[in-house]
Design a binder for these strands. Sequence first.
DNA 1: CATGAATGAGCTTTCATTCAT
DNA 2: AATGAATGAAAGCTCATTCAT
Lengths: 209, 209, 209, 209
Amino acid sequence: MPRAERERQMMDAAVRTFGQRGYRAASMDEIAEQVGVSKPLVYLYLNSKEELFTACIRRESAALVAAVTAAAEPGAPADRQLWTGLVAFFTHTAENPDGWAVLHRQARTHGQPFAAEATRMREALVAYVTGLIGATAREAHGAPDLADRDVAGLAQALVGAAEALAAWANETPGVSAKEAAATLMNFAWTGLGNLMAGERWTDRETAPR
Amino acid sequence: MPRAERERQMMDAAVRTFGQRGYRAASMDEIAEQVGVSKPLVYLYLNSKEELFTACIRRESAALVAAVTAAAEPGAPADRQLWTGLVAFFTHTAENPDGWAVLHRQARTHGQPFAAEATRMREALVAYVTGLIGATAREAHGAPDLADRDVAGLAQALVGAAEALAAWANETPGVSAKEAAATLMNFAWTGLGNLMAGERWTDRETAPR
Amino acid sequence: MPRAERERQMMDAAVRTFGQRGYRAASMDEIAEQVGVSKPLVYLYLNSKEELFTACIRRESAALVAAVTAAAEPGAPADRQLWTGLVAFFTHTAENPDGWAVLHRQARTHGQPFAAEATRMREALVAYVTGLIGATAREAHGAPDLADRDVAGLAQALVGAAEALAAWANETPGVSAKEAAATLMNFAWTGLGNLMAGERWTDRETAPR
Amino acid sequence: MPRAERERQMMDAAVRTFGQRGYRAASMDEIAEQVGVSKPLVYLYLNSKEELFTACIRRESAALVAAVTAAAEPGAPADRQLWTGLVAFFTHTAENPDGWAVLHRQARTHGQPFAAEATRMREALVAYVTGLIGATAREAHGAPDLADRDVAGLAQALVGAAEALAAWANETPGVSAKEAAATLMNFAWTGLGNLMAGERWTDRETAPR
DNA sequence: CATGAATGAGCTTTCATTCAT
DNA sequence: AATGAATGAAAGCTCATTCAT
């Protein structure tokens, strides 16, 4: 079996194992066994557990970014592009739960070499989304005062909301994934839309009109 | 030194260590050393790593829920209550980053006994927020089409968004609790407000009116 | 509570624990807890695990030897005395299974200081039995050529047979302890060969012809 | 060194150590050191202390049963077969004192998983002896009143006696296997009463009248 | 008469990693 | 292209034992 193919198998097994067990609890033994090869071969190809984990993060990052950017429909209105991007994002993460767990949970949970790698991916996505939101804002209204950091925060909130809804839909009988997605989009879009229209919520107690 | 005091020290050290290193990477040796006692004493008081971790989750859960519910201002309008709750939430998580890491990252990452414990805390928050949204809807005129299940979904989304934002704010230097709360409140409230006013987002491509 | 009483309680618990768990597996914690006192008190009274174990062996040895010698009927024929001694032995060991386990199993299993202690007890019993058998032989026939070592071997065999029969009677439905005792006595007294020739041993006192 | 060979060495060392120190007191470190390998290798091959102990019990059981049954002389009179079986039994236990200690003392002393394993061996021996006694009864004229249950009881007693004698012979310097076998055979065959009347069982093959 | 607080040492077990073939 | 054999290091946990009160 050619090396490239073997490496792919190894990384598949590694993503599965890291995603399900966590970085520390995953053992090189288990990964090698899943592929059906001996441990020294894993070391020959991937060098060490740290490098293997890093390689997994990189591969899954690239796959996710590719899935989202591939969904772009150049020329479409920005909100349409945001929608298709969101759909691509949620589709991809739903189809690759272990990969998403590696990126979102494990990479951030296990110290510097790995967290930095995951941050790079997030930044790529945030930059992409920032572009879309900026375009939307430019199309729709005057100058929006949404700083990059605001966008990053909104992206975090969006992903957190999406994950919570996905888990909730999984656990609650009678709630479909589509319904959850619609809830999210309604929530997010009416919110985002007004944000870009310059609306803000104000605390009537603290800062009474 | 009295036992109660020692136990508190131990749990402080445990939260710190679990939050920073993760459950698996944290070692009982390190925890004991931080307290300045021997490992057997930790076992004598807290029984096992699993029980210690569970105790940490429970303590931090209770503290967080207490912080949020203590921020309630009975009789205030629902949006005001949501705002103070969010501020309390983000303040507490910012002041206890390791505790929050234990709850949000570690507890959910390491399998059933622990995840269930964290879920209880989340459900308490969701229930609280559900109540607030329901109250808002009742207060607001003309919000007839928000079913109970919609409210539940929105609460899930809101809590999920808050959780993700809190983790992100903890990781990102220079993001204050109030800022995070404002970002979310802006996002959520303008969204919620329009939802309750009957607005919906629709995909003009897929389902053009 | 007076010291003597407390010590008795402690040794009761120790015999129970050593007999059931074995010397190594028994923990001073468990023994102290059974008595309802703190560990330091056990150490204050009994000094160490080794000494406690030794004390148990000694106490149980003395009790067993006392039970057997107390069953003597001075002046009765020697085989009658042997029979009553056997009955006393088996009665006592059946009533004190943990004590017997300490003597027979644990003491011999755990190295020199303890094995020697148990051997002393055995030698006392063997000397007693040797005396009886010698007397029987003198009464009944010419000079028996049963050396001390033969007697010791027979005693071992007898005890082994008795234990096996007791366990068998316990496990096999429909076999009573008395039946097992009779089987043993028949076996021991007349031998297999004679059993098959129709001979039986009978207690001339209990059931005189 | 090939794995099979290493495993044999490890089990040899384990039998030695378990037999001499007892299950609890034996340490995996000591076993590994005796073989001259590192502890992880012992775990790699034998999995755990419990499994290693179980494997020892099984191996020694099989060896003992094989030794006894291999001593059978088909067609010989039953008492002769009993004799050769006993000699084989005492010879084997004398040559493998640690193995016998594992079976007779340690396995029965340390709770269910192990005791059951030792019971299987004992049952094989009991079945073998039951067959012999039954055959003897059938050969002998006029032994009409030995019910099946009597035979079973006698076999239990005989095996129990043999086991106890073997342990004793192992502990007592200067007692040979043949001597032990003769002691038991005399006892078993003619009974105590006849022993004292000067009767002896004689091997009609070895020393024909 | 009695205990709460504390520990040094040791145990079983696991894991990432290497070397000779 | 691949593996069987092997290990140093560390982790979770337990236990007999002591001291100050």
